Amino acid sequence: MINLTQELYKFVSTNLSVTSSVERTGKGKGVADCHILGIDLDPVLIVRAEEANKFTSNVTYKCVNYMSDSENTISLYLKQQNRNYFDCIFCFSVTMWIHLNYGDEGLKQFLISVSVQTNLVVIEPQPWKCYRSAVRRMKRSGGNFPKFGNLKMRELVSDIENIFLNECNFIRIEKGNPSTDWGRQILFFKKVS
């Protein structure tokens, strides 16, 4: 999360098309007024992210359980930015954990909630083999994911796509080929105007 968020800020803030006095005069490249909110459930990860944050006035990290207490944090952040929604929401390596802990309905609720907060979503669903590995690791540590046995959604790329297309009024604008070491696809969805 730390490096990805910092690199994302650098990329967007220097490559986003902005209208500034610098650009209008043609004397140098402008820097976009970009603000990023990074959230995670893990407080240790948030502390590390805050300590490594090179852009403290534009990148904010918050420890939040999106499924139970994100509404106030997100509403307050958007209000501070004088915004009603995010330009884009990135969801990397989170869908499996939401799915395992909150079930099919929880994953669906998460996707619908995200779709209300933005016009563009970039999401990386974990494949089913990652679920089995996570369940094995949890069992070895003495825990379990009680919802795992009841999960009906198992073709995560197509299940997530169906929710965005059929329930959120989004269209898929890109589907990246698995290019990571983990073989995951990155999906891009845009709200239908």
Rank of each mutant, 00 (worst) to 15 (best):
Leu4Met: 13
Glu7Leu: 14
Glu7Thr: 11
Leu8Asn: 00
Leu8Glu: 01
Leu8Gly: 02
Tyr9Cys: 01
Lys10Gly: 03
Phe11His: 14
Val12Gly: 00
Val12Trp: 06
Ser13His: 12
Asn15Tyr: 06
Asn15Thr: 13
Asn15Ala: 04
Asn15Ile: 02
Leu16Ile: 04
Val18Gly: 12
Val18Arg: 08
Ser20Trp: 10
Ser21Gly: 08
Glu23His: 08
Lys27Phe: 11
Lys29Asn: 12
Cys34Lys: 00
His35Ala: 08
Leu41Asn: 06
Val44Met: 11
Ala49Pro: 01
Ala49Trp: 03
Asn53Val: 08
Asn53Glu: 04
Phe55Asp: 00
Thr56Ser: 10
Thr56Val: 12
Ser57Asp: 14
Thr60Asp: 03
Thr60Glu: 07
Tyr61Gln: 03
Lys62Asn: 11
Cys63Trp: 01
Cys63Arg: 12
Asn65Trp: 02
Asn65Phe: 11
Met67Gln: 12
Asp69Lys: 10
Ser70Cys: 10
Ser70Phe: 06
Glu71Val: 13
Glu71Pro: 00
Thr73Ala: 15
Ile74Cys: 02
Ser75Val: 04
Arg83Ile: 05
Asn84Met: 08
Tyr85Gln: 14
Tyr85Asn: 10
Asp87Pro: 09
Asp87Ile: 08
Phe92Val: 04
Phe92Lys: 07
Val94Pro: 01
Val94Glu: 03
Thr95His: 04
Thr95Val: 12
Met96His: 06
His99Ser: 08
Asn101Lys: 14
Tyr102Val: 04
Gly103Arg: 09
Asp104Asn: 15
Asp104Pro: 09
Gly106Lys: 05
Gly106Cys: 08
Gln109Thr: 14
Gln109Leu: 10
Leu111Lys: 10
Gln117Cys: 08
Thr118Gln: 11
Asn119His: 11
Asn119Arg: 13
Leu120Asp: 05
Val121Arg: 00
Glu124Trp: 06
Gln126Leu: 12
Gln126Thr: 05
Arg132Ala: 10
Val135Ile: 15
Arg137Val: 08
Arg137Ser: 15
Met138Lys: 15
Met138Cys: 15
Lys139Asp: 05
Arg140Thr: 08
Ser141Thr: 07
Gly143Pro: 00
Asn144Val: 06
Asn144Gly: 10
Asn144Tyr: 05
Pro146Phe: 00
Phe148Cys: 07
Gly149Trp: 05
Leu151Met: 11
Arg154Pro: 00
Glu155Thr: 12
Leu156Ile: 13
Val157Phe: 07
Ser158Gly: 03
Glu161Met: 10
Leu165Gln: 07
Glu167Thr: 07
Glu167Leu: 14
Phe170Ser: 00
Arg172Leu: 12
Lys175Arg: 15
Ser179Leu: 11
Asp181Leu: 12
Trp182Cys: 10
Gly183Met: 09
Gln185His: 12
Ile186Met: 14
Leu187His: 03
Phe189Leu: 02
Lys191Trp: 04
Ser193Lys: 11
